[in-house]
Amino acid sequence: MPTEYVPDGSTEADEHSRQSITANTRPTERVPTAVPDDETPAAWCPHCARPFATERLCALHLGDRHRDEWTANQRDRYESAYDDESNELFIFHLKVISALVGVFFAFTYTYAFVWS
């Protein structure tokens, strides 16, 4: 990673690394990947050749990173994968809500017993 030095030469400016979180898409970025020996990737990204463990992750990746270059077919795949994921997330969030309620009542009762 290149290091920038400010003109006076002694006070360093840290490499300003906020680009990734502020940029909307990073189609050119290559995230280092490694596939375990006993696994075969289910899909590769047609744009950046990144391997994925499931078809759905690959479709979602297209929407995350390659919106400017995708085809109509790839867009359809992304949208259906997104909807599937939304349904799964809804179930997950129901579980999260019940966990929150459970944790809250557990603490409420414990405090009630301790304080009484």
Partner: peptide
């Protein structure tokens, strides 16, 4: 945060995701 162009004020923690 010190940057090459001067000083920047950011939300605390914004440099921590890298």
């Amino acid at each position: 945060r010190r940057t090459s162009s001067g000083l920047t004020l950011t939300v605390p923690g914004s440099e921590l995701t890298e």
